[in-house]
Write a protein that binds this DNA or RNA. Structure first.
Length: 271
DNA sequence: CTTTGCACCTGTTGGC
DNA sequence: TGCCAACAGGTGCAAA
């Protein structure tokens, strides 16, 4: 579920509830996530204050005094804030409890997510040190993208989904942004002109920013929500819509596999 | 170096 | 209705 907008909205939703709170304990019910949950997390985190809540790419980072709790939601993860303890459900693998009785609960049915404790600086951590710029940062520009793509023969969609080029562009928004930029997803990256790169960057920023805004307004139920901690259903122009008419020209939307991921495009609009 | 394909896991969907 | 294969929004890593 979580693409970057969901992670950002999760961060914003959870932030006011946990900032400056003191961790009273960490309960781990299932260690086996993408990587095993850090065994020393409870010992290291207990007694510390949450000094900051940040997002880098799709990683959520809880800043404590002596280290950082890194949380990744994988494909199916979610975080909820509970004002008081309730019985955990099947895939509620981990609780970060606060001294006032409230808690942050991590759920992840597919267990592609991660919860790690680390003490090095953010740009030193192996998972974070090689990441490209944030898509909404000014450093991610048309000129930058054009420069990075000039020697790449792989498909443009694969390139913009590569964390080294730019972080946070997942399968859904890669498809949507390429549609809006009228670029065929399988087009070789080094065939994209500077003008196209500028437009593509603009579309990526717009489609992500709009989704974040929508998410922020449509769900505020990170607190004590009993269902899935909210992901928002958005309407897409092409994603998942093969054999449906293109909203711009009416041609049938097509599908092809690129790097084992489904790619949707309008054969008439996207060249 | 670039590029490709696999692996990790469970839940849902669609075709027969 | 029931069963089973295919697929799902991520991403690090090994191998080519």
């Amino acid at each position: 579920m979580p693409e970057l907008p969901e992670v950002e909205v999760t961060k914003q939703g959870v932030y006011p509830h946990i900032i400056n709170k003191k961790i009273g304990g960490v309960t781990i019910r299932h260690y086996q996530l993408r990587w095993p949950v850090s065994e020393d997390l409870p010992r290291c985190a207990t007694g510390q204050i949450v000094l900051g809540v940040r997002r880098r790419a799709k990683y959520l980072l809880l800043q404590l005094k002596t280290g950082i709790i890194l949380i990744h939601l994988g494909m199916s993860g979610s975080l909820r804030f509970l004002t008081r303890f309730s019985e955990p459900a099947k895939h509620d693998h981990l609780d970060i409890m606060f001294t006032d009785g409230s808690l942050l609960r991590f759920r992840d049915p597919r267990r592609f997510g991660a919860v790690l404790w680390f003490t090095e600086a953010i740009d030193q951590h192996p998972l974070l040190s090689k990441l490209g710029p944030e898509p909404l940062d000014a450093k991610f520009s048309g000129e930058y993208l054009f420069d990075r793509l000039k020697n790449q023969r792989r498909a443009i969609k694969l390139a913009i989904m590569d964390n080294v080029i730019v972080v946070g562009v997942g399968n859904i928004y890669a498809n949507e942004a390429l549609f809006r930029a009228k670029i065929f997803p399988g087009c070789a990256a080094n065939q994209i002109s500077l003008e196209q790169c500028q437009n593509l960057v603009k579309q990526i920023k717009e489609v992500l920013a709009t989704a974040i805004q929508m998410g922020g307004s449509t769900l505020r139920d990170f607190v004590d929500s009993d269902g899935k901690a909210g992901y928002f259903q958005q309407t897409y122009a092409v994603y998942g819509l093969q054999n449906q008419p293109c909203p711009v020209c009416g041609a049938m939307i097509a599908m092809l596999k690129l790097g084992q991921r489904s790619s949707f495009y309008c054969p008439s609009c996207q060249k």
